[in-house]
C-alpha cells in the first residue's frame, strides 16, 4: 500500500498508529470515562464528531494562514476552532439527550483539552494532507479512539469482578491494562509495512 492511499491513511490512524495506544493522545478521557461501556461508546462518538468538524475547519484555517503568511498564529487559531466545535457538540447533546449530557458531565467541555483533537489537526498539517485525506484521517483517528475506549471499558468491567491486590486498585491496574493493550496493538505495526 502507498502511504498516500486512503485505505492506508484510515488503517494507519485506526489501528497501526492508534492515537491513544501509540501516541498517548487523549489519555484523560481514556482513563476517566472508560468505567462503563455505554458512556465510553457515547464519549467516543462525541469525540469522533468533534474530530471530524475540527479537522475540516483546521484544514480551511491552515489554507488561509498559509495564504497570508501567518503560520505562527496556527496554534491559536486551531485551538479556537476546536473550542467552538466542542461548544457546538455540547449544545447539540444538551438539546438532543439531556441524560447523555449528564452522564458525560465534566468530560464534555474537557474535549477541548483532549490532545487527540489538537494532535490530529497538527499531524494533518505536518503530513500536508489534502481535503479528502484529512477527512479520512480524522475518521480513522476518531474510530481508533472509540475502539480504544471501548476495549478499555470492556476490560475494566471485567476487572471490577477480579480480586486484585489492594494497592493496585484504581489507576495503577488500569495503566498496566493499557500497557498490555498497547503491546497487542504493536503487533499491527507490520500491517502497513512502512
Amino acid at each position: 500500500m502507498q502511504p498516500d492511499d486512503l485505505t492506508f491513511i484510515f488503517l494507519n490512524a485506526f489501528i497501526i498508529n492508534n492515537f491513544v495506544l501509540a501516541f498517548f493522545l487523549g489519555l484523560c478521557p481514556f482513563l476517566g470515562v472508560s468505567a462503563k461501556l455505554d458512556t465510553a461508546w457515547n464519549m467516543g462518538l462525541a469525540t469522533m464528531f468533534v474530530m471530524l468538524v475540527s479537522s475540516l475547519c483546521a484544514y480551511g484555517v491552515n489554507m488561509l494562514l498559509v495564504e497570508f503568511n501567518l503560520e505562527f498564529l496556527r496554534l491559536i487559531c486551531y485551538i479556537a476552532v476546536i473550542a467552538s466545535a466542542v461548544q457546538l457538540v455540547e449544545i447539540t447533546i444538551k438539546k438532543v439527550s439531556p441524560e447523555l449530557f449528564r452522564a458525560l458531565g465534566i468530560f464534555l467541555p474537557l474535549i477541548t483539552t483532549n490532545c487527540a483533537i489538537l494532535g490530529l489537526a497538527l499531524f494533518q498539517t505536518f503530513k500536508e494532507y489534502d481535503f479528502l485525506q484529512c477527512l479520512v484521517y480524522s475518521a480513522g483517528a476518531g474510530a481508533g479512539f472509540t475502539l480504544a475506549l471501548m476495549l478499555m471499558a470492556g476490560l475494566r468491567v471485567k476487572l471490577d469482578l477480579a480480586d486484585v491486590p489492594s494497592i493496585s486498585r484504581g489507576s495503577a491496574i488500569s495503566f498496566m491494562l493499557a500497557g498490555i493493550l498497547s503491546l497487542t496493538f504493536m503487533g499491527f505495526a507490520g500491517l502497513g509495512g512502512h
Binding site: F23, I167, S168, I173, G179
Partner: peptide, 17 residues
Amino acid sequence: LPPGGFFVIGAWLLLFS
C-alpha cells in the same frame, strides 16, 4: 516504546500506593 510508558507509570503508582 509506547507500552513501556504505561508499564512504568503503573509501576510508580503501585509503589506510591
